[in-house]
Structures are given as structure tokens and as C-alpha cells.
């Protein structure tokens, strides 16, 4: 199968802090890859190094066969990115943000259709900052999908969404995956990871502690539920016990 994202021996440190240590993985076309780990485990740094917004100390990264640092212009015609942070102008409306985003690319999906599919078509004239947390989150996914991407990066995909909205987002993403979209996501919801991810990679202190499928993760652990297995890998359970 064609590899869409290839990460080889990625290492990045901030001063003395080793944020990402010798991380390697690859993501095949049309699959969903989950990058998991506690806050500070190195997920965001890994994503930023893949996208080229941070420069890795060593290792190789390719996305769609291109180097994100040297082939930026061509690569990002086909890549959608949703960041955690609020990176939009304070007084901008939903419609304007979609229009401006669309004008950056040569080929785009129709933003109005996407807004309809994510149930926020009636918010076009609202200011982005006035949207609820869940509506904002859905808008940011819409923005990531505007370039008709071949691969999307979704950082903390459904944080702030209610149960129903999360299910709807999952359904839409599964549908896009069927059509060949490759997705790399981070999430703190293990039910979501189980429902969506074909492959996962669990990071702890910048290193890979597990890389494989969800069922393999459960099989290789002493637990039967994936969430317990995840906590076992990240040792969060042990830490909570110590606190008791």
C-alpha cells in the first residue's frame, strides 16, 4: 500500500528537553492514524515537525512523497490542517474565514456544502468567536477539508463536542476515508480512537511505547479494554495510584 506519511527516526529537543526521540512510523493511503499520548508526550511537536512548522534536529519526514520544508507550496495544496489553537482574526465571520481559506488554494471544495454537512450552514454570518466550542471545532474541520486534501492533520479532533456531534464527525470522517482520504489525528478519547483508527502510535516522554492496531494494543497488554491498555502503556494508571 502507498505510504502517504513517512517519518524516520525523528528527533527534536528544546534545549535539554528531548521532546521527540527517534520516532518512526508510516501512514498508508486511505487509513486513519492515531497519535496518542498524555499532554507533553510529544504529539504536537511530532505533528509540527511533519508539517515543517518546526524543524527536526534529525530524521526524515515525507508527506505525499514531498519534503514539507522544501516543497511547501506544492505539498500544502493537498494537505488540510486543523490546529488546536484559535488562529483566526478576532472580528472575522464564519463565511469570511471560509472564503479567505478557499482563496489560498487552486482547487477547493465548496465551503457552503461542507458547512451544511457539518450542520453549521446557518452560522455563515456569525463571528467565529461567538460560536460554541462544538461549532468552532466543526468549523475548523471544515477549514481543514476546504482544499480537497489527500491527507488531513486533525489535532484533538472532537475536544469540546457533545456525544451526538462527535458521532456525526466520526461518520463524516469514515465516509471521507472510504473515498481515499488519509487522516492523522490526535485524541484523548479512546472510544473515538477505537471507532476510527486503523493504526495507532502511543508516545510517552517523546518515545514510541506502542505502534500497531488497537486490537494488538489490547492483546499485548494485561488488560481487556483498550482504555485500560492505553493507560497501562502510558503508565498514567500507576501515577494515579501513587496519588491516592
Amino acid at each position: 500500500m502507498q505510504k502517504i506519511i513517512n517519518v524516520k527516526q525523528l528527533t527534536k529537543s528544546y534545549g535539554k528537553l528531548l521532546a521527540v526521540n527517534n520516532v518512526s512510523f508510516s501512514v498508508s493511503r486511505g487509513t486513519v492514524f492515531g497519535l496518542l499520548g498524555a499532554n507533553g508526550a510529544g504529539k504536537s511537536t511530532t505533528i509540527e515537525c511533519i508539517l515543517g512548522t518546526k524543524k527536526a534536529d534529525s530524521g526524515q519526514v515525507s508527506v505525499l512523497g514531498m519534503n514539507p520544508l522544501t516543497n511547501r507550496k506544492m505539498l500544502f495544496e493537498k494537505v488540510g490542517v486543523q490546529f488546536q489553537e484559535t488562529n483566526y482574526q478576532e472580528q472575522i465571520t464564519v463565511g469570511e474565514l471560509c472564503e479567505v481559506t478557499a482563496c489560498l488554494y487552486r482547487n477547493t471544495a465548496n465551503p457552503a456544502d461542507l458547512l451544511t454537512r457539518f450542520g453549521i450552514a446557518d452560522k455563515q454570518k456569525s463571528l467565529v468567536k461567538d460560536l460554541s466550542g462544538g461549532q468552532k471545532q466543526r468549523l475548523f474541520i471544515v477549514l481543514a477539508l476546504i482544499p480537497n486534501p489527500e491527507v488531513v492533520f486533525l489535532d484533538e479532533l472532537t475536544t469540546g463536542l457533545d456525544a451526538k456531534a462527535r458521532r456525526e464527525v466520526w461518520k463524516i470522517l469514515s465516509g471521507l476515508k472510504e473515498k481515499g482520504l488519509t487522516i492523522l489525528l490526535t485524541s484523548h478519547f479512546m472510544d473515538e480512537v477505537e471507532a476510527l483508527c486503523d493504526q495507532i502510535c502511543i508516545l510517552k516522554n517523546g518515545e514510541i511505547v506502542f505502534y500497531g492496531t488497537v486490537s494488538e494494543a489490547v492483546k499485548n497488554s494485561p488488560h481487556e479494554k483498550f482504555e485500560d491498555a492505553y493507560l497501562w502503556y502510558t503508565d498514567e494508571e500507576g501515577q494515579t495510584d501513587e496519588n491516592l
Binding site: 508539517l51 515543517g52 512548522t53 511547501r72 507550496k73 506544492m74 500544502f76 495544496e77 494537505v79 490542517v81 490546529f83 489553537e85 484559535t86 488562529n87 483566526y88 482574526q89 478576532e90 481559506t101 489560498l104 488554494y105 487552486r106 482544499p147
Partner: peptide, 17 residues
């Protein structure tokens, strides 16, 4: 400085522009 601190400039780095 506002567009930098709101990470708007950073968002443009992951677009073709």
C-alpha cells in the same frame, strides 16, 4: 503582532501561500 500571537501567520505556513 496580533496576527503573530493569534498564530494566524503560523496557519498560513501550512497553506500554499
Amino acid at each position: 503582532s496580533e496576527y503573530r500571537s493569534r498564530k494566524i501567520l503560523k496557519r498560513y505556513k501550512v497553506t500554499p501561500i
